[in-house]
Design a protein around this nucleic acid. Sequence first.
DNA 1: GCTAACATCTACAGCGACTGTAGGTTCAAG
DNA 2: CTTGAACCTACAGTCGCTGTAGATGTTAGC
Lengths: 139, 139
Amino acid sequence: MEYTIGNLARRVGYAVQTLRYFEQIGLMPEAPRTAGGQRRYGARELRRLLFIKHARELGFTLNAVRSLLALAAHPDAPCEAADAIAGAHLTEIDEKIGKLQAMREELARMVEACAGGLIAECRVIDVLADHGKCLHEAH
Amino acid sequence: MEYTIGNLARRVGYAVQTLRYFEQIGLMPEAPRTAGGQRRYGARELRRLLFIKHARELGFTLNAVRSLLALAAHPDAPCEAADAIAGAHLTEIDEKIGKLQAMREELARMVEACAGGLIAECRVIDVLADHGKCLHEAH
DNA sequence: GCTAACATCTACAGCGACTGTAGGTTCAAG
DNA sequence: CTTGAACCTACAGTCGCTGTAGATGTTAGC
């Protein structure tokens, strides 16, 4: 039991409240307590938390992380389920990138076309007020 | 006063509750009511709502939309402020795209490297458990 | 005019993934 | 033994909606 919640949080790069939140939603196990009621953590918890952090940095939702953690706990099970989660997430990311690029294109066109005069002639406001002036039907 | 809230919502592609929400947060003006207390809308409100919808589709936050609407109401003012909002938004979108592409790359590498056997040999779980196995320090 | 069906009303809770606050307690160093 | 930092619980707030419950309004057909 080598870490206080603050030490663990600093080590992983999370806020203290976030660790308590993870415990509350059952993503982290209930931590053992000192006589005074403070949480103490060990190396296992550090590893688990690093896993969570890393998965979050790759954009997995907390629910996906929950599933991945459950899978990681069964080394002898087939890894199809893990692949499926990662594959679905990859697809989602590709969709998001696609939508953002469409937005980006339309926005860049607006901003470039604006001569910088009065609102009355502003391409930005103008295009927003009239979807018909967009290149693409659906952004 | 040609539209009920439901008609307006269908026309613009918003849920009825969303229009009430917009009124509540002051993004739409308080609509006039029938004797029985139901909201009725006209062409002005339709235009305003289409502007909001379009700006949202381009990824502007509701606060940004609020500012853009305020600017649109002053045709004789200079359009610098509108350009600034759009420019800042463009920058944010570029950052998001960059982050998503970094995620995408790392994820794709994991998924491809996984042979599809047991969890114990699964690249997906393996990489998640050890950030050191990533190409990039920061995703 | 009456009834049935549908639309609308208010007020509130819930989502995800945290962050921030208030008011109190525990711990470790000096 | 005192001080001050770190910890505790419980709850509200963020954003942009969505969904619910229970009551009331509107409208078309008879």
